[in-house]
Amino acid sequence: MATVELRFSALPAHVRTARLVAAAVARRSGVDEGVLDEVRLAVGEACSRAVHLHRRHCPDRPVLVTLVDDTDAFRVAVTDEAPAEPGGGEGFGALTDVADLVDAEAVPPGVGLAVIAGLVDDVSVEPGRDSGLVVRMTWPTT
């Protein structure tokens, strides 16, 4: 089991850094080439969400991305430390009606998670140790 950890300041530019690193480690772990776009997008969505929340609540705290090359799987965990937003309505079911999106000034925070859920078969969202969420995503490797 080999691990790469990336801890980055909550800056939009570093979401791209995280995507690049995730894709590189995924490729090295043996994730199918055809799935790398999916890894890039899903990790990017999870990191964008974390950066957005950190900038609002705890801009000095870094976002943590853990990339694990396991025996038969590539595992990613994106951990944020932001407090839960009251009535944030985040979750995989948040995007219930496209009309919600068109009426909103910006994409609601749940959309990033909805995209991840639509892309990744093996995904879970859990509360973090003290605050925030851990988005875990797993892809099979060959």
């Binding site: 969505e45 068109v102 910006a106 994409v107 995209v115």
Partner: peptide
């Protein structure tokens, strides 16, 4: 080459 939900949000904003 790459589009995420932030980009979708901008397009939706443009549509509005």
């Amino acid at each position: 080459d790459f589009l995420d939900s932030t980009g979708l949000g901008v397009l939706v904003g443009g549509l509005k």
